[in-house]
Write a protein that binds this DNA or RNA. Structure first.
Length: 418
RNA sequence: GUGAGCGUAGCUCAGCUGGUUAGAGCACCGGUCUGUGGAACCGGGGGUCAUGGGUUCAAGUCCCAUCGCUCACCCCA
């Protein structure tokens, strides 16, 4: 039997109900703040991410689905949303719009990782970007909107983590410092962290390895915050101040590290305690200068993405039900063979104004009622010999048990009047 | 990419130290019930026991390989 490829899933029923609900809620929350939806292609040229996300990031180095097309172009299935949106932003000259330009997107992303709980090779994100202003208030608003979305869905047990990763120069200084302090402890570090020491020492900070954390404590590593410029520190304080004014609760995490190279200054993540190892529902930060990496003018920006699949896990963990799927108002039951087409004609005359389903072979009434209940219909309509003779339909309310006989031409207006 | 656990009906699972026709519950279809309710009872359909090889008189059961799933590492949404 042919199955869906590893790490991909078929979405239907309850799962799809959750996804559509999350996307609709995001649209409402974000459009109320002036954001416009944008859909960019799933396929992009590889440099969009190599330059945008950063050549040293794991996402680009080992997680991209990449191939060469017939024209010799190197294409990739997008691994994240921001870089493509920024490419589109530049391509369409959106910088002439009043700043900040607020955009949101949703759709599938692809990463060639080993699947596990909350992690898939094709996964779905909803993301938000605000481009063109470096004001801390824009950061705070973006974060508030992310929290608004969580609240709009009824989620309660999430935690907002806030930190700052500084500007690129700050980070360069800090990375140099980390190499210097940790090099004497190199042998005590985990294998992974010894590699990080070369590539990206910052990542050692959020290592899950207990030994690594002991090394950090023993070496007396100073926090990144000490290495920030005054401007970056002031920015961080301003964001915190705005969040407090907004009443948005957050936990400061000085070791918050983001995996995509383009982040500067503000960084944040939303965590949920019941998701297993992949606890981040979403995250984001500021990415001033990303547009320059893509070959455009250097523009400030801030944004985030949430993993729809993980939000679904969180909703389930908090026992928040998916919205009900479609159900007919009326289920038509033909009682004899002649009534089948009558029922079909009647159903079509009521649609699409009213959702109506029917049985396609004659049924005994009791069975018809069971089927109607099974489909979630409120009313069941019987068409038999007597109804045909009188030009009527017998309509039974499955909640009250009341039944009445109506002229067929009155059925539509009667149902609509309910 | 690394590690561990697990693959028996659509779903959840049982199947003893290998033993003869592979089971249950739920779901589905039909009947009891020829124009009226979710119950109950009776019956029915549905399985290459993940795949391939091996051991054995005999393999769902033991061994090996492959594939897949799950969780964790890594990474991140």
């Amino acid at each position: 039997m042919i199955k869906a490829v590893r790490g991909t899933r078929d979405l239907f029923g309850e799962e799809l109900g959750y996804k559509r609900w999350i996307e609709a809620a995001a649209g409402q929350v974000l459009e109320a703040a002036g954001a416009q939806e944008i859909e960019t292609p799933i396929l992009e040229e590889a440099p969009v991410f190599e330059k945008g996300v950063g050549p040293t990031s794991d996402v680009v180095q080992k997680e991209m689905y990449a191939f060469t097309d017939r024209g010799g172009r190197r294409l990739v299935l997008r691994p994240e949303g921001t870089a493509g949106v920024m490419r589109a932003f530049l391509e369409h000259g959106m910088k002439v719009r009043p700043a900040p330009v607020k955009l949101y997107y949703r759709g599938p992303m692809f990463r060639a990782e080993r699947p596990q709980k909350g992690r898939y090779r094709q996964f779905y994100q909803v993301g938000y970007e605000a481009v063109g202003l470096s004001e801390p208030a824009v950061d705070a608003e973006a974060i508030a909107l992310l929290v608004d979305l969580m609240k709009a869905l009824g989620l309660q047990r999430f935690v907002l983590k806030l930190g700052t990763v500084g500007d690129p120069e700050d980070r360069r200084r800090y990375n140099a410092y980390l190499r210097e302090v940790l090099l004497p402890h190199r042998e005590a570090l985990s294998e992974d962290s010894r590699v990080r020491l070369e590539r990206n020492p910052l990542r050692i900070l959020d290592s899950k390895d207990r030994g690594d954390q002991e090394v950090l404590a023993r070496a007396g590593v100073r926090p990144l915050f000490d290495f920030l410029s005054e401007a970056a520190k002031a920015h961080y304080r301003a964001v915190k101040g705005a969040l407090k004014a907004l009443g948005v609760a957050f936990e400061e995490d000085p070791r918050l590290v983001r995996g995509l190279d383009y982040y500067v200054r503000t960084a944040f993540e939303i965590h949920h305690p019941d998701l297993g190892a992949q606890a981040a529902l979403g995250g984001g930060g500021r990415y001033d200068g990303l547009t320059a990496l893509l070959g455009g003018p250097s523009l400030p920006g801030v944004g985030w993405a949430v993993g729809t699949d993980r939000v679904i896990l969180a909703l389930k963990a908090e026992a928040i039900p998916a919205p009900p799927g479609p159900a007919p108002l009326l289920y038509l039951v033909p009682l004899d063979a002649e009534a089948v087409v009558e029922a079909l004609v009647l159903a079509e005359s009521l649609r699409p104004r009213l959702p109506v389903e029917l049985a396609y072979t004659p049924r005994k009434p009791g069975k018809g009622i069971r089927e109607a209940e099974r489909r979630g219909a409120r009313y069941v309509g019987f068409l038999g010999e007597g109804e045909r003779a009188r030009g009527t339909i017998s309509v039974k309310d499955l909640v009250t048990g009341e039944q009445q006989e109506l002229p067929r031409e009155k059925l539509g207006s009667w149902l609509e009047a309910l």
